[in-house]
Structures are given as structure tokens and as C-alpha cells.
Design a protein around this nucleic acid. Structure first.
Lengths: 170, 170
DNA sequence: CCGAATTATCTTAGTGCTGAGATTGTGGAG
DNA sequence: CTCCACAATCTCAGCACTAAGATAATTCGG
């Protein structure tokens, strides 16, 4: 698509390599995150939930679900676990009795006030392989990359992970 | 670390945001990969194994493990499953009887010849949110990011996931 | 050659999450 | 009001993978 006569497939090589470095960078940073939140007996997904609530206040379960990218079953499971530990509570939604809010309890709020700054420092450290300017540039590139990839796969925003039921060879 | 008097913590904000866009970009592209390899009844990790063998030839299990970043139990599991399906076989290592090679069977080789080009096109498409120059730049940045993060957590390359046995309060 | 430390793989139990379907509730058409 | 398509959450079985320890083989000091 670029220069078909330069090399047989320079574009494919570039894509493959970009995917490899993207995966490895993500895995390396994710491991820092995992180790950091594990100190408080949280999984990254659990931390994602309370982090969202910490910054945005009470949110409908579906809103949290979309924010941290888990399945509908997953968000129920995560909120259950956090509720059992007294960090989060469900609150009925007055306008729609199917829905409910998740909100931090006082204990959850206190926990986040304590651990979030440490977590931010952990991330700063994990990402310190790039200086400020390169981080800004990386943000710009990754945002474009992610947006495009996400739009390609969901031209019309399905929430959970639905596909057309295709009556193929069943 | 940059301009402490600009905003209270611009560096932390930048790190947080970079982590978010890195995660979302990775998730979006990973979903393309998952959907693509699922068409052939493979998980991304399984595909990673046969892709490594396809490009490098027979490899020790430990080498594959490090390449695709799974646990020691994970590589056994993956190779077992691929062997059951006749795509991969184990071969004894003549120089070290503890070790064994994983190698593609003829069927596995044939499968990869058929599906790998499609997969490469899928990736090209998923990553087409950036033009060639931006992809090169992203590769450079992500490589630096990943390398730094990986080195931070393993100053001396442990394979599986070992920690010092610390004789704490036992 | 012996034994301890190390390494490569395998085993087993457990877990966090997914996917599909069930349940409950909403809102609009008739 | 009744019905029905649709939406939000929950239930539950299943699965890919992890963590820790077991097994078996190598290396190396003595």
C-alpha cells in the first residue's frame, strides 16, 4: 500500500512489529500495575472499578462496565466482590429500577485516598522510559490508534460483545 | 519532575493518561486479533505459539514461553492442546533430556501458510489509524517504553515469576 | 564419582473472567 | 390498559490461564 516495489510487504512487517511492541509495552506496564494493586489484594479490574468511582462519583454499573471494558457478567462479579469487602455499595437508581449505581463506601473512599497517589507514582515510574515530550507524542499516537481500531470493529457501538447470529452451517 | 509550578502534578496526569490510552489501544487491537484467530478456533496465545514456530522453526518450550509471555504451566498447556489438534509436536532435545522442542507439524505449517497472510492483513487494517511514518514513530516510542518498564521490574531476568523466598514471618 | 544447587518441564488446584441465557423493568404502539 | 421490543443487570457453566510445588536431568565444586 506504500511502496509495493520497495520490499514485498514492508507495510505488513511494520504492522506486525508495531503489534509486537504494543503488546510487550502493555504487558510490561500491566505487570507493574498488577504488582502494585496486588499489594492491597486487588486485581487490576477491581482497581479499575474503584478508580472510576473515585474520580467520577457514583456510576451506573453499565457505565463502569464500558469504562473498564469487561463483560456484563464481569461487572456484576467485580462489584459483588468489592461490596463483600465493604469498599463499594450498590444504590438503587430512582429513575430506572432495572439499573443500579455503584458508589464507593467511606472505607473505599479512604482506601483510594491512601493508595491512589502511590499508584500514580508507580505508573510514573513504569512509564519513565519516555520523557515528557515523548509521552505526549505517544499519547497522541495511541489515541489515534485506539480510536481507529475500536471504530473499525464496532460501527455501531454494541456494549457487551454481540455479533449477528449468522445462521451459518448449524 | 518537569515544571513543578505549572500544575500540582502534570507528570502524574500524563502518566495516567498514557496508561489509559495504551490500555485502550491494546485492547482494541487485541480484540481484532482475537476475532481473527478465533475463526480458526485458536486463542491468541495458541496463535502466538505457532506463529513463533512458523517464523523461527523448532524452539525449546522455554524459548517459546519467553517469547509469548506465559507461565511455565501455560506453555505446557498450550503445546498440549496444539499437539492434540495435530498442529505441533514435541521433539526430544538430544543435548538436554529435561528439555524438549516444539515444532510445527506439516498440518501446522500448512495452516500457517494459509492463515498467516490473512492475519497480517487483519493487523494492517487494525493499525491503519496511523500512517507509515506515525507507525514508525509509535514503534520507536513503544519499544523504549516497553524496554524500560521490563527492565525496571526484572533487574536480572527471572523467567517464570520468581521472587526471593523471603523468610519473613514463617 | 557424589551431592547440592540449578534448570526445564509437568502437575494440580484454583481463579478471574467470558458468553449465553434468564430475569426484571421500561416505554411506546395500539 | 395490554403487549412487545428493547435494555440493565444477574446467573451460571465453562475455560484459558496462573501459581506453587513436584519431577527429572544437568552442572559443578570437591
Amino acid at each position: 500500500m506504500d511502496r509495493p516495489d520497495d520490499r514485498p510487504d514492508a507495510a505488513a512487517d511494520r504492522a506486525l512489529k508495531l503489534w509486537v511492541v504494543l503488546s510487550r509495552a502493555h504487558a510490561a506496564v500491566a505487570e507493574h500495575v498488577r504488582a502494585d494493586v496486588a499489594r492491597h489484594d486487588l486485581t487490576p479490574a477491581e482497581f479499575g472499578v474503584i478508580e472510576a468511582l473515585y474520580h467520577k462519583g457514583p456510576l451506573l454499573l453499565g457505565e463502569v462496565q464500558r469504562k473498564i471494558l469487561v463483560s456484563s457478567g464481569g461487572i456484576t462479579y467485580l462489584v459483588d466482590r468489592l461490596a463483600e469487602r465493604g469498599l463499594v455499595e450498590r444504590r438503587p437508581c430512582p429513575e430506572d429500577r432495572r439499573a443500579s449505581y455503584a458508589a464507593l463506601t467511606d472505607a473505599g473512599e479512604a482506601l483510594m485516598r491512601r493508595i491512589f497517589p502511590e499508584h500514580a507514582r508507580c505508573l510514573e515510574r513504569a512509564l519513565s522510559g519516555l520523557d515528557a515530550a515523548d509521552q505526549q507524542e505517544a499519547i497522541r499516537l495511541l489515541r489515534a490508534l485506539g480510536r481507529h481500531a475500536a471504530e473499525l470493529r464496532t460501527p455501531g457501538a454494541p456494549r457487551d460483545r454481540q455479533r449477528k447470529p449468522e445462521g451459518g452451517a448449524a
